[in-house]
Nucleic acid binder design. Structure first.
Lengths: 340, 340
DNA sequence: CGATTTAATTAAACCGATTGCATAAACTCT
DNA sequence: AGAGTTTATGCAATCGGTTTAATTAAATCG
């Protein structure tokens, strides 16, 4: 246990200089003589001296820390984004602290207490779009913030990395229509939810627009929403698939939910894709394993890009806010085909 | 941007008391008058004051931070442990900083630089067992350390939360033998690896012991190891399954690898379980989805328990080191049956 | 060679909280 | 009522760095 921490003053005394000089030597200030620096660095090495983090933070005002706020971080798609964040950030000098949100109240807490200069140098927010009343809070925040897979129209001062979920939902639906489907169901998250997740809502919007454009009437009984999850999606799908006139295709708002739909189909003895086509969204690993047709998004890259933007802004605070829209790509596998 | 931070002195001035009193009021010291406290707390609320973290850390010597060192944190089983850690820790006052290890050098770096009093109050290490030469480093570390799914015989001063992988591997193999299998393959990670992962090695050891106990000779061609991953396991399995005399059952060292084995079987046109039985390890979500027979371990609980132990030790530094062995449970699903 | 610039270093203030010690006020007891 | 406690608060030192201004020594110049 006990191990007396060695301070900069100790190093200074041993090297025969003042603490200030040691500090400068360590931080590569040009204001120190070459020989002096060398002598100091030798002592530093010899005693394995590392500056006290908290002291450094206090005196410089920099925290060398970045926070990431994520909801339900075990969700595969969120994980993959987080993976991009962690991998990219591990090359930098910044520490990453994670705040996982599983309750709506935590969400409010985080937005209020995290983005402060004395806690972190920057914040990444994944998949949680700020609500209207949170806008002033974030706008006034004294640290740069990057939204990943989240957006807000009024927040032009924030970096945002998004996908066009409306276009994505539309494209999936158009693909199913092209295959000849007209009875197309949608299984997603609640459009109205305490976390303000917007992706499912937007994909559903694209779904409706595609139907409308093709002249197919929208049927409320073909739309089901439930808190995100495999079991929940399975129940939604079972309900829909036991209708007198069941859909011949189901568009699930995520791969996780698509798996639930596949399970429902199996339970009901429906063959995929002969009796039912299923499309997911995200293209996480399970999609490849199951041969699921899905809309791929650049999950890892979204996290990576978010970190890059944040670091850039920290380097140069004058960086103009960027709103990047990442592309999506339909990956056709074995769960879709024409209706029989 | 600019927003002058409000300090404890500001609060003190406004409330008409000294900074010390404000500090005591905030920290629930009994040494402050009820009315005074109330008055102070009102000012605190009104100005939304939160103490400067770095300052607090410097003066108390506590970092209020816990580090977790994880290898390849997107691996499903690791994720689940991490989930237990994050969930449990989010209820506490501690921040969690994540250090993801993907290169052997990062591993050494982390062990050297992280467990320092001025950086963190405690460290959790997941699935990375210390090597002999790392022991002194950790032993001398000035902060408490908890190993989760990792162990070292000489480190009795560290908390350890493990499973008995040897027994687990033995049990899986015994189950297959009971079913009537004698040609049983093993697909795992390299026993000798730069991260010093031990679980696959131990499970293989159990596998061999079970064979020996049953009088079944060990065949080297039925043992394959490859860096952890689905694709890698698929290749290993394909090699094994195209032998002149192929195994009728394969024990994979993890569910991820079992999925690779299933893919290999599919590619080779082998029916599961009629032509080939497959058993995994971990019981992560994909196992349930695919109906994989597997050895369940308490992944979430291991993380949870690790945090509890660490917090306990932080509360009471005299806590005796604990070595807990969590139970495992064989979950029989659809990928195993008697050989045909 | 004295005056002035330049380079290297030190001394001291500061970052923002916590806490031991001193002190003042209020209260108890005989 | 005066001595002794108890309670509440202020003062000032402290944590371990960084950084500005001051100082000294060496170098340059007219």
């Amino acid at each position: 246990m006990g191990k007396k921490a060695i301070t900069i003053r100790d190093i200074a005394r041993i090297a025969g200089v003042s603490p200030g000089t040691v500090s400068r030597a360590i931080n590569n200030s040009p204001l120190v003589n070459v020989e002096t620096r060398q002598r100091i660095m030798e002592v530093v090495k010899a005693f394995d001296y590392v500056p006290h983090l908290a002291a450094q933070r206090l005196s410089t005002g920099k925290t060398l820390t970045i926070a990431v706020i994520v909801p339900f971080f075990t969700t595969p798609s969120v994980m993959e984004r987080l993976n991009g964040v962690v991998s990219t950030l591990s090359k930098s000098k910044y520490d990453l602290v994670i705040h996982n949100i599983e309750e709506p109240e935590q969400r409010a807490d985080c937005f209020r207490t995290i983005p402060r200069q004395d806690r972190v140098d920057g914040v990444l927010v994944i998949s949680i779009s700020p609500t209207d009343d949170e806008v002033p809070l974030l706008a006034e925040a004294s640290v740069p913030i990057v939204l990943i897979d989240a957006h807000h129209a009024a927040l032009s001062m924030l970096h945002q990395i998004t996908v066009d979920d409306i276009a994505g939902g539309k494209a999936v639906t158009e693909y199913l229509i092209e295959l000849g489907h007209t009875k197309i169901g949608f299984v997603g998250d609640p459009a109205d939810n305490p976390f303000n997740f917007t992706s499912s809502r937007d994909r559903a919007l694209g779904y409706r627009r595609a139907l409308k454009a093709a002249g197919i009437p929208y049927r409320p009984e073909y739309y089901e929403e439930n808190p995100h999850g495999r079991q929940e999606a399975r129940e939604s799908a079972k309900k829909m698939l036991t209708l007198p006139e069941r859909p011949t295709a189901i568009f699930a708002s995520s791969d996780v939910q698509a798996v639930g739909v596949l399970e429902a189909a199996r339970e009901l003895g429906l063959r995929v894709p002969q009796d039912l086509s299923v499309v997911g969204y995200d293209d996480v690993e399970i999609a490849e394993i199951l041969g699921l047709t899905t809309m791929r998004q650049m999950l890892f890259e979204s996290g990576q890009r978010g970190v890059e933007l944040l670091l850039e802004t920290l380097e140069n605070p004058e960086t103009k806010p960027v709103h990047e829209v990442l592309p999506t790509e339909l990956v056709i596998r074995d769960t879709t085909g024409p209706p029989s």
